[in-house]
Design a binder for these strands. Sequence first.
RNA 1: CGGGCCGUAGCUCAAUCGGCGGAGCGGCCGGCUUUGAACCGGCAGGUUGCGGGUUCAACUCCCGCCGGCCCGGCCA
Length: 566
Amino acid sequence: MTQADTKPTTHFIKAFIDEDLACGRFDAPLVTRFPPEPNGYLHLGHTKAICINFGLAKAYGGTCHLRLDDTNPIKEKQEYIDGIKQDIRWLGFDWGEHEYYTSDYFQQLYNWAVKLIQAGKAYIDEQTAEQIREARGTLTTPGTHSPFRDRPAAESVDLFARMKAGEFPDGSHVLRAKIDMASPNLNLRDPVMYRVLHASHPRTGDTWCVYPMYDYAHGQSDSIEKITHSLCSLEFEDHRPLYDWFISELGIFPTRQIEFARGNITYTVTSKRKLMELVDQGHVTGWDDPRMPTLTAMRRRGYPPNAIVDFWETVGVAKRENNIEVAMLEHCVRTELNKTAPRRMAVLDPLKVVITNYPEGQTEEMDCINNPEDPDAGTRKVPFCGELYIEREDFMEDAPKKFFRLAPGKEVRLRSAYWIKCEEVIKDDTGKITELRCTYDPQTRGGNNPPDGRKVKGTLHWVSAQHATNAQVRLYDHLFTAEDPTTPPKGSDNWLDNLSSDSLKTLDHVKLEPSLADAEAGVTYQFERVGYFCLDATDTTADLPVFNRTITLKDAWAKMQKKKGG
RNA sequence: CGGGCCGUAGCUCAAUCGGCGGAGCGGCCGGCUUUGAACCGGCAGGUUGCGGGUUCAACUCCCGCCGGCCCGGCCA
C-alpha cells in the first residue's frame, strides 16, 4: 500500500452522495452551494465549508454555486459581498456563472408563502415577540397555540399582503408556519417565516419590507437552484425536519441537507463576535491584521491558499466535535511553502563581520540556488564583499560543543560563498560584541569543500554590508497563549486575558540581500534558515520595505535549547 | 425521566456486508545534508467511553448506562 492510498480520501458525505446517485435519488451531476451571509469577513472556519462544497462538486464533476444569503438587510453590506468573492477566488475556487442571491428569490418565496397560507399551513400572528417566545414553551414543556392560529386563511392572505405593502410597523405581525406547538423539536413549534423589517436592502432597496427568515428561505433557495446536496454544519441538524417540511408541503425539488462538524483549531478564535471585539478594542490593527484568522489577514500574512485546502483534505470530515492542533495547519503551510517559496537571504539581527584577508574593495557575485526543491527555479547572483552581516545568534563567544555555528577560532561555511574562520571579537565599552574579524579560504568559493579535506558542520546565511537593503520585519506568533482562547484563564473572567504579549515583534534594522528590493507582493519567500516572509503591500513605503513573517522554519536547535532550559 | 447528534492513539481521521485496529500530524531516537530546513529510517503511544447480550468471531449488530456538544431570535 502506498502513502497516497492511506490518505483519508473518503468520508460519510461522499458515502451518502454515492448512495443517492446509485439509487437514482438524484440525477448527476452533483450540485452544491456555499451560502455565506454577507455580514462580515470570511475566516478560517468558513474555509472548511468552502473546501467541502466546492471540493465535492469538483470531485464529482458537478458545480458549486455561490449564494449570498442576504435575508437580513440590517446586518449586510456590499463591502462584505465584495470581500467574500475575493476571498473565495483567492482560495482557488470558481463558481463561474453561478452567483446567486437569496434576495433574487424574494418574489418566488413570497408567492410560495401565500400558497402555504391558502393551504392552511401558515398564518399571520399579531402577538408580540415576547408573547410568541412565552407561548413557545420550554425544552421540556409543550407550547401553546397563538390566538391567531386558526384565523381564516383569507384573512391571513390579506394581512400578509398588507404587511408587504408597508401598512404595519416592524414587529407588529409575522407569518408563521402551522406545524406543531407540542413538538419536542422547537424548530417545529410554528416557526416564524416572515417578519416586517422597514430596512433598505443592499440589492433590493426599498422594494420589500417583509423579509424571509433563514429557515424559510434557505431550503427553498436550495430547491430553486436544484442543489442536490446542501452541506452545512451540525447545529442545523435540528432544522432539517423543518427544511424537509417546507419542501414537502410545497412539492418542490427535494434537496438533501447533510450536516458535518465545523473545524475548531487550537489557539484561534473563529467567532465573529470575538473577532469583532479584537478589532474594535484595538488588540489587532484590523480585520486584515496578519494575526487574524480571516482570509484577508492570512493572505496578507503570506499563507499559500493551497495549504488551507490541503489542511482540510488532511483533516477529513466527520460529525464529531473536534479541536484540531494548529500545528497541523502550520505543517501544511510549511509543506506548501517548502515546495514553492523562492529562497533568499536576510539577516534579522545583524552582526558585522570583516574578512581581514579579503582583497580590499573587491566584490564578487555568488550563484545562489533559488529553490533546491524546484530545479526549474534556477539561480540568482548575490553580491559578496569583505564586509558582511551575519545573524547575531549565529555567533557565541563561549560555545558548547553542539553549537555548529561561529565561535572564536571556529570555522563555518557562508552559504554559497566561502568558509570563514573567526579570529577576533571586537566589543564596545559595555562589552557588547560589535564586530567579528574573520579570515576566509579562497579555495572554498561557492561554499565548496577545500581540497585538504577539512570539514565544517555549520552553514550560515549572510548579506553583504555594502549591498544590503534595509527593511522592517514583523515577527508574528500565535495571538493567544491558551489552546482554547475563549475560556478565560484561571482567576480571570475575561477571555481577552489569553492574549499573548509576544504575538508581534517588530525588527527595524533588518538587512536584506539586494534582490529583495524588488520583492513581489503576493509571493512568500523563504529567508534561508530563518523562516517564510512576504512583502506587506499595505505598510511598505518607498523608503522602507516591510516584511511579514508567515511562519518560522522548524528549528531543532531552538527546541534543544528550550528543553535544556526547561 | 424534552429532542437531536457524537464518543477509536496526545490531535484529526481510517478500518469491505461482523473477519489479525491503521494513517497523517505531534513526540522521541538515529541517518543524511552547502538551510540544525527539507528528506530518509526507526520507536513509543489503544481495556475502540463503561457494562451486558448475540456470534466460531464485535470498533462494527442489540440492550442498558456514562460523558460531551447543539436546540427555547421576529439572527444565519
